[in-house]
């Protein structure tokens, strides 16, 4: 039951091989974490799957369809939601407006001059906000939100097209420790409820080991290990280059 199948993905930047022959798969409703030191190729890998960077080699299959060179726009329409490492939503809008914009885009109305955008599907936007716990911030400007709440807006945006796969780059970076667990519990419950698979990168090992079904460890652009949390924790190769003795 593979939803996402990544095969032999590679990318070089000049002399540096950022991602080198990386293959893995994500099963339906699975939460797969990618970990590794800075510069291991996590973000590059992620951005290639998300359409932000074009791979040099390799293929990405989503539900059997080749999406390797699809634009982010197309991926969104195919059912892949994406959140970014540094939460950057539309600073000049409030929460409801941001979500209305996503709904307008989903419905293919972004070229329209015919009606004020603020009147479009306000209720659905409010429901979307409520689903990530932002019901009290509908009229708050995004620039006034706390970072944790901004991350929630990102999540709501990614959910706007009822995705089957969520790509989350550092979903909890910059959040307070209790907020992190809360965030991942929210993701988990959304995933279980709607049958969504989640592929995420993360630095916080508590988050990774508490919430991932399987863990992919990258080092210097290559796959070091891919296994369940318990196996990864015990893997001597992973300990040597990454986790060290404390883990």
């Amino acid at each position: 039951m593979t939803l996402l199948d990544v095969q032999r993905l590679s990318k070089r930047f000049g002399a540096v091989s950022a991602v080198d022959n990386v293959s893995f798969d994500v099963a339906r409703t699975e939460m797969l974490a990618i970990i590794g030191p800075n510069g291991a190729g996590k973000s590059t890998c992620f951005n290639m799957i998300g359409g932000q960077i074009e791979p040099d080699m390799g293929t990405v299959l989503f539900d059997g369809t080749d999406i390797t060179r699809d634009t982010p726009q197309k991926l969104f329409r195919s059912g892949i939601g994406r959140t970014f490492q540094i939460a950057a939503v539309f600073q000049s809008m409030n929460v409801r407006e941001v979500l209305q914009t996503a709904l307008l885009s989903r419905d293919g109305r972004t070229a329209s001059f015919l009606f004020p955008a603020r009147r479009y599907k306000g209720e659905e936007a409010d429901e979307l906000a409520a689903s990530v716990g932002l019901q009290d911030f509908l009229n708050t400007e995004c620039r006034a939100l706390s970072y944790g709440d901004l991350k929630r807006v990102e999540l709501a945006l990614a959910l706007a097209n009822r995705p089957r796969l969520l790509l989350m780059d550092e979903p909890t970076a910059g959040m307070a420790p209790d907020g992190r667990q809360q965030m991942m519990r929210l993701v988990r419950s959304l995933a279980d409820k709607s049958g969504i698979s989640v592929l995420f990168t993360e630095h916080d090992m508590d988050v990774v080991f508490n919430h991932a079904d399987r863990i992919l460890v990258l080092n210097k652009g290559q796959v070091l290990a891919l296994d369940t949390p318990d196996e990864i924790r015990a893997d001597p190769a992973v300990q040597a280059v990454y986790l060290g003795e404390e883990a």
Binding site: N38, A240, Y242, E246
Partner: peptide
């Protein structure tokens, strides 16, 4: 130490 492998942090 952010983003560094634990061995480098030491």
């Amino acid at each position: 130490s952010e983003g560094l492998a634990p061995v480098i942090v030491d």
